[in-house]
Computed example of a mutant assay.
Amino acid sequence: MPALTFNNVSKSFGDNTVIKAFNAEIHDGEFLVLLGPSGCGKSTLLRMIAGLSDITSGQLLFDKIVANDWEPKQRGVAFVFQSYALYPHMTVRENIAFPLIMDAFKKWYHLPIVNIVARHRLMRRKDISDRTLQMARQLELEPLLDRRPSGLSGGQRQRVALARALVRNPALYLLDEPLSNLDAKLRTQMRSEISALHHKVAKTFVYVTHDQVEAMTMANRIIIMDKGIVQQVDTPDEIYDNPANTFVAKFIGSPPMNLIPASIRPDGLKLAGQIAVAHDAAKPTRREATFGIRPEKLRLKAKGEGRLPARVSIIERLGAETVIGCSLVTDRKSDDLLIEQDLVFVRVSGNPRMQIGEACSVDYGAEDVLWFDSDSGERISLKSE
């Protein structure tokens, strides 16, 4: 099973550079997710791993061996496409067995009449038929083996595409948004099945998605990309708790992290008594920064009991929890902090029985606050000298 290394890999189409100096490592046997908005270059990166797209510059290494010029067959990868790419004229059995048949194909088998005879003969070969049946059973497709793709549901087609990819027992699995065409219930089911499959086969999976839920629930590590640039590489928990910048903070979480432009006054050095802000006493200017906090870290309180006076603007009941959007009032001051944003989201358990327009307040602990540079968006640490 290969470990993959990217050394300054870039990809351009003419004058348009879609991946810029990509550096990362994919460890042997891990489930790595490439996550980002549409157009960020994640599918292009997957195609470069498979050998379906050339690398413009840089090096891609399979187990420390440069693989830029390897043919797709040399790489030992299985590719599951977003569109399933099943052959409509073939049965489920024939679709699953197709990679095995092609591996056993001779050059002269491509002749028109010979082709038909050879394929039927190979389909009956014991090692191919046994392996096909094994994969069908593993993905609960055995009752569907004689159907064609037109007679299958979306989830069944997706399982056929997975079975076809798995049947060759490759060293590396590449999955390009395989669940995007399924409804919510099937996506949940297939997430569990793919995760279980990864644990069972113990091979390297590289999975492309723009869905943060898929990434957070399935990945060992996540690479977050935007405009062809890596924003953060880390575990799901670390990315959620300590986003590297405001892009990651906004992209991960539903609702995302509250990011509040703020000015920290030079005559007040503390936020909630714990975070000190260095300043030059000779030049008493405000320190501009972005105050970040997750919705579940905010505390909703009665009017006058929290630092930030607010009014309920939005209520989203989600069963076991409720998301409440609170508009901050005009006088938005908290100790030494001057808030410059009108709306924050608070996640609370159960139903707080509040009404839109009701006066309230919002509170927080200093230990739950993250700070970001106002210009670059990068996470910073505000500490006393």
Score class of each variant (00 low, 15 high):
Glu305Ala: 06
Cys326Val: 03
Ile315Ser: 00
Ile293Gly: 00
Arg317Cys: 00
Cys326Asp: 01
Ser327Lys: 11
Arg287Gln: 13
Leu298Phe: 08
Ile324Ser: 07
Lys301Phe: 04
Arg311Asp: 07
Lys270Gly: 06
Leu271Asp: 06
Thr330Asp: 15
Ser263Arg: 14
Glu305Gln: 10
Ala320Tyr: 09
Phe291Trp: 03
Gly304Tyr: 10
Thr330Ser: 14
Pro284Cys: 12
Thr290Ile: 09
Glu305Lys: 07
Glu288Tyr: 07
Ile260Trp: 02
Ala282Tyr: 08
Glu316Thr: 01
Ile260Glu: 07
Glu316Ala: 04
Leu308Ile: 14
Ala320Lys: 11
His279Glu: 10
Ala262Glu: 05
Thr330Arg: 14
Glu316Ile: 02
Cys326Trp: 00
Asp331Gly: 14
Ile315Asp: 03
Arg317Met: 04
Glu305Ile: 00
Val312Arg: 01
Ala302Gln: 12
Glu321Gln: 12
His279Thr: 13
Gly292Met: 00
Ala262Pro: 03
Leu259Gly: 07
Thr290Arg: 01
Thr290Asp: 04
Thr285Leu: 13
Lys270Leu: 14
Ala320Gly: 12
Glu305Leu: 03
Ala281Gly: 10
Leu269Tyr: 15
His279Gly: 11
Ser263Ile: 06
Arg265Glu: 15
Arg332Ser: 12
Ala262Trp: 05
Lys301Glu: 12
Ile315Thr: 04
Leu308Val: 06
Arg287Pro: 01
Ala289Cys: 05
Lys270Trp: 10
Arg265Gln: 15
Pro261Thr: 06
Thr322Leu: 10
Pro284Lys: 13
Gly319Asp: 09
Ile315Asn: 02
Lys297Trp: 03
Glu288Cys: 07
Gly268Gln: 15
Lys283Trp: 06
Glu296Asn: 05
Pro284Ala: 15
Ser313Ala: 13
Lys270Ile: 11
Glu296Thr: 04
Leu271Thr: 10
Gln274Phe: 14
Pro295Asn: 03
Arg265Lys: 15
Gly304Val: 04
Ser263Asp: 15
Asp280Ser: 12
Ala276Trp: 12
Gly325Ala: 05
Phe291Asn: 00
Val329Pro: 04
Arg311Tyr: 08
Arg287Val: 14
Gln274Cys: 08
Thr322Trp: 08
Val329Asp: 15
Gly292Leu: 00
Pro309His: 13
Gly268Cys: 13
Ala262Lys: 03
His279Asp: 13
Leu300His: 04
Leu259Glu: 05
Leu308Ser: 02
Ala282Trp: 05
Arg265Asp: 13
Ala302Glu: 15
Val312Leu: 05
Thr322Ser: 12
Gly319Ile: 00
Arg307Ala: 11
Thr322Met: 09
Gly325Met: 01
Ile324Gly: 06
Pro309Gln: 11
